[in-house]
Design a protein around this nucleic acid. Sequence first.
DNA 1: AACGTGACAGCAAGCGCTTTCTATGTAGAC
DNA 2: GTCTACATAGAAAGCGCTTGCTGTCACGTT
Lengths: 348, 348
Amino acid sequence: MTVTLADVAARAQVSPATVSRVLNGNYPVAASTRERVLKAVDELDYVLNGPASALAAATSDLVGILVNDIADPFFGIMASAIQSEIGGPGGRAGGERLAVVCNTGGSPERELTYLTLLQRQRAAAVVLTGGAIEDAAHKAAMDAKLRKLADAGTRVVLCGRPPAPEAGAIALTFDNRGGGRDLTEHLIGLGHRRLGYIAGPEERTTTRHRLEGHRAALTAHGIEEDPRWTVHGRYDRRSGYEATLELLRRDPTLTAVVAANDTVALGACAALRDSGLSIPRDVSVAGFDDLPFSIDAVPALTTVRLPLAEAGARAGRIAMGREEPPPGGIASVRGELMVRGSTGAPRR
Amino acid sequence: MTVTLADVAARAQVSPATVSRVLNGNYPVAASTRERVLKAVDELDYVLNGPASALAAATSDLVGILVNDIADPFFGIMASAIQSEIGGPGGRAGGERLAVVCNTGGSPERELTYLTLLQRQRAAAVVLTGGAIEDAAHKAAMDAKLRKLADAGTRVVLCGRPPAPEAGAIALTFDNRGGGRDLTEHLIGLGHRRLGYIAGPEERTTTRHRLEGHRAALTAHGIEEDPRWTVHGRYDRRSGYEATLELLRRDPTLTAVVAANDTVALGACAALRDSGLSIPRDVSVAGFDDLPFSIDAVPALTTVRLPLAEAGARAGRIAMGREEPPPGGIASVRGELMVRGSTGAPRR
DNA sequence: AACGTGACAGCAAGCGCTTTCTATGTAGAC
DNA sequence: GTCTACATAGAAAGCGCTTGCTGTCACGTT
């Protein structure tokens, strides 16, 4: 039925060992023999049995990429960049690895399950993207899992995730705190004193860090924050829309709304427009991430650009062992403030 | 070093066979024995060796999802829906499958390579999303590959792709032609007679079908198309921007621009704005797909909504054998015209 | 009381490949 | 011309799991 190595060997009149060596190319094989084997492979249309070779060699060519939400371009862009450094015919010779993207949907259980699945497949490397969940038990479980993976020889890289040194993982972290600070300082510099903040889900590190940056800026400028000015929600448009309405209800005198990310900011813009407020004349709006569509908002969104593609590519290379990990295994990646039309001086 | 089935068996005082059966749950095992085994698994922190079991059982729990561009929400949304029906802890008991997303980047070679990689892994199913490339040689190669996969027991499902009956694949196709027609008829109904069209890359089926729909509508209404009115480009914003400028240069009297998809339409909007033209007063703009951000454009984009998530979910279920394939193995999925602010009656 | 009958559990034979170790042939060294 | 060394090729032992087949009890039957 299925063609096996042995069939190829028979046809090429060599031993299975030789065929294997030709295919893996890490052992001297005479050119004439190699050719004969390759010819047989071609004629028989032979396809290596992945599981069998993974079993025998005790390694596989699978590389896992975990994302929180594959439908969100934030993750899509990173995943794309990571994958481009890893998989398919993009890689070096013989380096044909199967980069697989796993969608956790932000669920802790799924995250863990996927890791187990990848561990089960003896993945060559794993890249985790995006913020982590701030739950002690979950973090402990994750760290243990990652540690186990690392100990088993799987390279573990975190991209846009807080470091987990205990887990033996290499981390490329986004400086969400710094970005949040820059953004709010920009707004304060413009003259804003009453700023609403639409935060992401409470239990995410990204949410906390961005919020901390925001508050640090307020504090640094002697602005006392009103607890009514912060609303938590999800990282989606709908949430931004509703949260904005809520903020406006709580304090109609707000002159700026800072959103957890660009998608949320878009929702905020829609809510403001629907409330008859003009941006930025009545209320300034700022986002975070600088996703491609942010520039198309009207007015274009002021935001913090995160080098998603660059960081992803780097994480991919590190995962493949093609680039040195940063010193200490941890690198912080800065965002860049992009000032655009959605922020301006407050009118009042 | 690594814990194996045998270790678990030893600890639970049973044979490896029994452990395997407990883990796979398809053979009667006494409750007390099962418990003892499960306890040992837990204590030893045992993780099944995927490759080994795939080899022995001659099947794997991998399901491949091929996408053209993972950074594009069009694919992200479909992939997410497909995966939600397949993978991780979402599935039924024992049905823990590893849904993996493979990014082809629209390259024919990569597409083929990924298929080989999946074939090598003995994937349980494969879902191909998005338009295909119109190249006879490539199509033949793809069909042959898919056929081989199907013959080997891999379920092959096409989602948003033209059918390939010769390949033995089940297809859920988007009615791009019908959508394109509806859209253009809407514009014609509004009074437009000079419509520019920004098409996607020439060699894609999606491009051709949408364009055919557009032209069918023109013909049906006795409008003779000026060859200057069509420009081809990529499916991205930049391309939409440049193509719009080009269209305007070729014929400044155009009153509407139909874009290959929403992303392109956004670029078109930007170009029009930058040219000092108002939407829809001076020029109407229409997109395709109805991606989430389309509603946030100002004005909101008139477009054709494709049920990406629904189709993806269905494709996922079919791939898992949890839903009957459509009769004849082919189903056409219609899009729905969403009329919004970006289109209006022409001024002149 | 002898026997059939399930319900479980174990044996052992692979699954298709990699890789260590060994054999062989040939070429250069002395 | 014999010996050592190198370049290749093959034999065979697994890798860790699944599963068909073969027991082995403990019962219920007749």
